[in-house]
């Protein structure tokens, strides 16, 4: 890939920004999408169902990535408003799936491991609030899974309500659902619960790509037998 970098262009005026010259390359590699092919036709934004709720619609996200404007990406509403419907990827003449790019930023944020240091605090309060709720939901979903092995909505929703501080909204709906028997009080159970918990424990190994393929399989099997 060439060393093309819009990041070298001096952006006059506007808010002070954190520029990562390598952002386009990082995102291309992490998402598998050919970010630099974009010629801003905006067919993606035109078809995006969530574009009107985004501060940066999909075409702008791609543009900002090319500029290397990392902090705007990390603090924006748009990546959290993306529903992953893949309409952008279906329509783009250059085959760019913007949802994948959004996922890259979300996973950097949720893992707490940004590929580069970011300067000061990110984003406006409003965006932060919305993002916080979305990020919270992701975390709680995973926590519920880790605990129960399968989805247990009461735990998820309860946890979400408490953690987001948004206790009162949706309560009528929740209560109705409870009484209609749609929200079982107790989770189901089975041997899978232990297995899922074990998977979570092993997660760092996979994400850090420490686990070597086939060679280790026999070792793992031996260890399992010895247990």
């Amino acid at each position: 890939m060439s060393e093309h970098s819009l990041a070298a262009v001096n952006l006059r005026g506007g808010p002070s920004t954190e520029i990562w010259p390598d952002l386009a390359r990082m995102v291309t590699r992490a998402s598998g999408q050919p970010v630099l092919r974009c010629y801003q036709c905006h067919k993606c934004s035109s078809g995006c169902p969530a574009a009107e709720f985004m501060d940066f619609p999909p075409s702008q996200i791609v543009r900002l990535v090319t500029y290397g404007l990392a902090d705007q990406m990390l603090s924006c509403k748009a990546i959290w408003a993306c529903t992953g419907c893949m309409t952008c990827g279906l329509r783009c003449p250059n085959g760019i799936e913007v949802g994948a790019i959004n996922d890259v930023f979300k996973s950097w944020i949720l893992s707490g491991k940004l590929p580069q240091q970011v300067g000061d605090k990110l984003g406006t309060d409003q965006a932060k609030a919305g993002n916080r709720r979305a990020a919270l939901f992701h975390k709680l979903f995973l926590m519920t899974l880790k605990q129960f092995g399968r989805m247990h909505e009461l735990a998820l929703m309860g946890g979400y309500k408490v953690a987001s501080g948004d206790l009162l909204s949706d309560i009528p709906v929740g209560v109705k659902m409870l009484f209609k028997g749609k929200l079982p009080l107790l989770p189901t159970s089975g041997p899978y619960r232990r297995e899922v918990a074990a998977m979570f424990q092993r997660a760092p190994l996979v994400t850090r790509r420490r686990l070597k393929p086939a060679r280790r399989l026999s070792e793992l099997n031996q260890r399992r037998q010895g247990r």
Binding site: R29, A30, G32, M86, A100, D103, S107, L145, G190, Y192
Partner: peptide
Amino acid sequence: PNWQCCGAVYPLARDNLFGVVSAAR
């Protein structure tokens, strides 16, 4: 028997294998 949650979303980013471990199982 013993199925587990699929994770509900397929991670679109390429570097996130953990998101599909459950489905793989």
